[in-house]
């Protein structure tokens, strides 16, 4: 092995830079995006703006870290956005101010903060069990399974917020101790604040990083994505692992939904609509292969940051909303076209 190591060292500098650039292409794209925008519009680099973008990214990171492992197992979860909506409505409905005029549950006593959030997470877990079991035991392709649950969950959420004869109404008047989770921060000095939601996101990132790299489940997830048949032969419990992946994702969507409701101070049955597409986009930009087995937590975080920073940069540069859509679409395809090069040459 020593012999091989020297050959690596002897490689020309140019080739080595190219290697690193190939492996970290998306990180370079992110830094270039931030740097270029900062040159054109220095206010983009204000500490306040950066922290603001990181706060926006936090909910998406949690969501994408649910979707990512599913993609790693060759699956996909289209129900993610709708589960965010359900979870947000559940949490919001039980965390309205006592004196708010149109409460969903007028007679509900003030609940401890954690209980409704836990309930929202449990709802996400139940949908995860459903998705995972259908995929694992009934062998329905994940795309179809989650297409179905996506529609079903929207129906459930709408029923939940439906108040005949008024119909589905937004759930507002949320308690301050709830909304502060997603909007508050620890003041450190001047503009530099440490938002609570960012701390939550970082904890989730670390937890998922440990799960994927340092646990048996994580290794099995990559194995199933890389070669499900070989995983079965090696004695991996494929069905159990698949269900677990959808359950973890459901829990994360539940948390993301609660945080988003707190962030915007209200929830409707349309909360989270099409967010699964943003999550999938962030994952693939971050180098997760939709054919499974390839992808890292670092990549997924990078993918989310590229999307949110791009969005923010376009707003700050005064680009119209319609052009923003066009840019976003182009960068998804371009990013994957660049990223996929590193696997193509191997074949």
């Amino acid at each position: 092995m020593a012999a091989i190591d020297t050959t690596v060292l002897k490689r020309p500098l140019g080739a080595r830079i190219k290697d690193v650039a190939g492996k970290r292409a998306m990180l370079i794209v992110l830094l270039a995006l931030i740097g270029l925008t900062g040159i054109v519009q220095p206010s983009f680099l204000n500490v306040g703006n950066i922290i603001n973008v990181l706060m926006i990214s936090s909910v998406y990171v949690i969501l994408a870290l649910g979707e990512g492992p599913i993609l790693l197992t060759r699956g996909v979860d289209l129900s993610a956005g709708r589960v965010v909506g359900l979870a947000g409505c559940i949490a919001a409905s039980m965390l309205q101010r006592v004196d708010y005029s149109s409460k969903v549950f007028p007679d509900l006593p003030a609940m401890p903060l954690w209980a409704p959030i836990l309930l929202a997470v449990v709802a996400g877990i139940l949908i995860g069990v459903l998705n995972g079991s259908i995929v694992a035991y009934l062998k329905v392709p994940p795309f179809i399974t989650t297409l179905g649950t996506m529609v079903v969950v929207y129906g459930i959420t709408s029923l939940y917020v439906d108040r005949p004869p008024h119909g589905a109404t937004p759930i507002g008047g949320l308690r301050d101790d709830f909304t502060i989770i997603s909007n508050g921060a620890i003041d450190i000095s001047g503009d530099f604040r440490l938002p609570y939601i960012l701390i939550i996101a970082v904890v989730i990132v670390l937890a998922m990083w440990v799960l994927l790299n340092y646990t048996r489940t994580g290794k099995n997830i990559y194995a199933i994505g890389a070669n499900p048949d070989a995983a079965t032969v090696s004695g991996v419990n494929v069905n159990k692992t698949l269900i677990l992946v959808y359950v973890i994702a459901g829990a994360l969507y539940g948390l993301a939904g609660s945080l988003q409701a707190a962030r915007q101070g209200s929830a409707t049955n349309n909360l989270g609509f099409t967010w699964e597409l943003d999550a999938i986009a962030a994952c693939v930009i971050g180098g997760v292969s939709t054919s499974g087995g390839i992808g890292t937590v670092g990549g997924i975080v990078t993918g989310v940051l590229i999307l949110t920073f791009l969005n923010n940069a376009l707003v700050i540069l005064g680009v119209s909303v319609y052009w923003q859509q066009i840019f976003k679409g182009l960068i998804i395809v371009t990013a994957v076209a660049i990223d996929i090069r590193k696997y193509l040459k191997k074949r």
Partner: peptide, 9 residues
């Protein structure tokens, strides 16, 4: 290839 190795790992 199909049931032994995990090629991309």
């Amino acid at each position: 290839r199909t049931t032994g190795i995990f090629p991309i790992l």
